[in-house]
C-alpha cells in the first residue's frame, strides 16, 4: 500500500465518498476529507497531507482560492494538486493551470482516469510522501 496521504475536498458528500472509495480501490487508503476550501485549510494545518484532490465549485472558499492559498503557503507550496470538477471549458482549464494545479479531471471521471493522473503526478516526482 502506498504511503501518500490524500486530502479530498468537495462540497458534495456523494463525490467525496466516490473519490475516497476509488482511491482505496487503487491502493491509497490514507485519506482525509474536507467539505470546502476553508475546511481544507484547517485540515491541512492540523493533519497535513501529501496530495490534494479538490473540486472547483464550493461554498465558503472554492478550489481555485484553495489552490492559490496552498501555493502561497511555504509549508504546502510544493504539494501536488489535482482539480476534479464539472467545469470542462477551455477557459476554465487555463484558469486552473494559471493558479498551478498539477493536473485537471473533468467529472464524471473513471477509476482508471483518476489512477493515471495520480500516477503521472507522483511519477513526475512532485509528491513528497510522509
Amino acid at each position: 500500500m502506498a504511503t501518500v496521504k490524500f486530502l479530498v475536498v468537495d462540497d458534495s458528500l456523494t463525490m467525496r465518498r466516490i473519490v475516497i472509495n476509488t482511491l482505496k480501490t487503487i491502493g491509497y487508503a490514507d485519506v482525509v476529507e474536507a467539505a470546502d476550501g476553508k475546511d481544507a485549510m484547517a485540515k491541512l494545518l492540523s493533519e497535513g497531507a501529501d496530495f490534494l484532490i479538490t473540486d472547483w465549485n464550493m461554498p465558503e472558499m472554492n478550489g481555485l482560492e484553495l489552490t492559490k492559498w496552498v501555493r502561497g503557503n511555504a509549508q504546502f507550496a510544493a504539494m501536488p494538486i489535482l482539480m476534479v470538477t464539472t467545469r470542462g471549458n477551455k477557459e476554465d482549464v487555463i484558469e486552473a493551470m494559471k493558479v498551478r494545479v498539477n493536473n485537471y479531471i473533468v467529472k464524471p471521471f473513471t477509476a482508471q482516469g483518476l489512477k493515471e493522473k495520480i500516477d503521472a503526478i507522483l511519477k513526475a516526482g512532485e509528491a513528497k510522501p510522509a
Binding site: 464539472t86 470542462g88 477551455k90 482549464v93 473533468v106 464524471p108 482516469g113
Partner: peptide
C-alpha cells in the same frame, strides 16, 4: 455552488479536450 455548464458526458471527450489544454 453550481456549474451551469455541468453535464454527464461519459464519452471522455471533455476530458480529452481538457488534457490537450493542460
Amino acid at each position: 455552488v453550481f456549474d451551469s455548464s455541468a453535464e454527464f458526458d461519459a464519452s471522455g471527450e471533455r476530458q480529452r479536450a481538457a488534457d490537450a489544454v493542460v
